[in-house]
């Protein structure tokens, strides 16, 4: 059975018919969002992370029809932000094969909302990003990259405050 759904994908309004048992991961890849990757079938790896109304969800276990009336964001819609975080990862060599990078970066970006002070501790970074598996890096480079990224974000914010004074 199919159902017509209307949703916003990366800022663009779309109406589509989806089979009711189709998962968002497959739907997004079919619509050209190839940054969304499948790494497992058990919601264990975090590769397929996208945003549903700016909140991270695993698209492998989110039905496509759930997008109805919502905003879906993938890395295709966050290219400038991805490039900035990507630079921090690359400065540590942390992207390695890159297959987990899109899901990881989606979650790093959502950390900014979870930590409005932009000051997560190392333990908080490890905990928040625990669901993003990576087999190449041993994670230490991710931690370094995220730490540097937030330090830069704080500096940017503080510089902004200086200016408004």
């Amino acid at each position: 059975m199919n159902k017509a759904v209307t949703f916003t994908l990366n800022g663009k309004k779309i109406t589509r018919e989806f089979p009711c048992d189709l998962f968002l991961l497959e739907a997004l890849r079919e619509m050209g969002c190839k940054s969304v990757k499948r790494g497992c079938e058990t919601s264990a790896c975090g590769l397929c992370t996208v945003w549903l109304d700016e909140k991270p969800v695993l698209s492998c276990t989110t039905l496509a029809v759930r997008a109805d009336g919502h905003r879906i964001t993938t890395l295709e819609g966050l290219q400038d932000e991805a490039r900035i975080i990507g630079g921090y990862l690359a400065d540590e060599g942390g992207e390695q094969c890159g297959f987990c990078s899109p899901g990881l970066i989606m979650n790093i970006l959502s950390m900014e909302k979870a930590f409005p002070e932009l000051n997560p501790s190392e333990a908080e970074i490890r905990h928040y990003l625990e669901g993003n598996l990576c087999r190449c890096s041993g994670y230490e480079s991710h931690i370094r990259a995220v730490t540097h990224y937030f330090a830069a974000k704080r500096a940017e914010r503080d510089a902004g405050k200086e200016e408004t004074k």
């Binding site: 190839k34 940054s35 969304v36 990757k37 993938t74 890395l75 295709e76 290219q79 991805a82 490039r83 975080i85 990507g86 630079g87 990862l89 690359a90 400065d91 060599g93 992207e95 094969c97 890159g98 297959f99 990078s101 899109p102 970066i105």
Partner: peptide, 21 residues
């Protein structure tokens, strides 16, 4: 040196560069 990987930008912005993509 500490050099970025030449493919870093394509990988971290999620470009379609893998087999299935």
């Amino acid at each position: 040196g500490r050099i970025r990987k030449k493919d870093w930008e394509a990988l971290t912005t999620g470009q379609p560069v893998y087999t299935d993509d």
